[in-house]
Design a protein around this nucleic acid. Structure first.
Lengths: 133, 133
DNA sequence: CACCTTGACAAGAATGATTCTGGTATGATA
DNA sequence: TATCATACCAGAATCATTCTTGTCAAGGTG
């Protein structure tokens, strides 16, 4: 996240902790991951605060919500356009920074205004491949 | 779905109703959509039956679960490999049948075994564009 | 066709992620 | 430092999905 000196958002210790946790984080944590971690430092932390903060960051465009796991939402502080590689076994999510120029041909797109895209690659990660048969 | 004469699955009126509803359906319904519709014919229908049947079909490979909407799961009886176009406003989901040859370059993929991919295009559908400014 | 076994059904309880509520506390600003 | 908007916490509420249990019926067999 940009230096927390941001503008327009009230800085509280809880928010700072969340911002710090997210900064450079490439694990695509869930709200629960964040809550559990932050709670170590702030035992009074409430789940509502985590969700509220995530919502605020999302609205400001400093956080992206991923809809990859049907069980729970994951969050990605990397707001640059990129794609994901997901392990079918351990569910780990990896970033793919690469531009694939994909365009829907006119005849299928019609007047649908395409604003963007997101590719999910799925398969088996190295460590799972080693374990499993 | 292939002619219900399938093998290995016990045919019940409830299942037939669900199969019929799904046959050729391109609306990507949620469990609730299916439940609500089938309930008209079978007022005794239980939600558990819908979920059980969907699970069974999924296991047999006759149904694909879509993780596109963070609110609820959607189901697609079209099991051919294809992609989706999602309207940011009305959340409508459209099919894109087109092969995009996308490959992750070796240096990023490493020994990750990529089995497939799914592209989500998002934007504004024609009817929403017309309504909104 | 009658019987039997297995698996499907309904109803409702349980679970778990996310959202909401209401009252209190605290940054940011003057 | 006083003010005020806004964030915080705790817990309740919501809602999709899963689980449980007792009952029943589909499909195969004789």
């Amino acid at each position: 996240m940009q230096k927390y000196r941001d503008m327009g958002i009230k800085l509280t210790p809880q928010r700072l902790a969340i911002l710090e946790y997210l900064e450079g984080n490439e694990d695509h944590p869930s709200a629960d991951d964040i809550y559990t971690e932050i709670k170590k430092k702030f035992p009074m932390m409430s789940f509502a605060t985590v969700y509220n903060t995530l919502e605020t960051l999302k609205k400001r465009g400093d956080l992206v919500e991923l809809t990859i796991d049907p069980e729970r939402r994951h969050y990605d502080p990397d707001t640059r356009h990129h794609h994901h590689l997901i392990c079918r076994k351990c569910k780990k999510i990896l970033d793919i920074h690469r531009d694939f120029s994909i365009e829907i041909p006119e005849d299928q797109k019609g007047t649908f205004e395409v604003l963007g895209n997101h590719i999910e690659f799925y398969g088996i990660c190295p460590s799972c491949k080693m374990k499993g048969e």
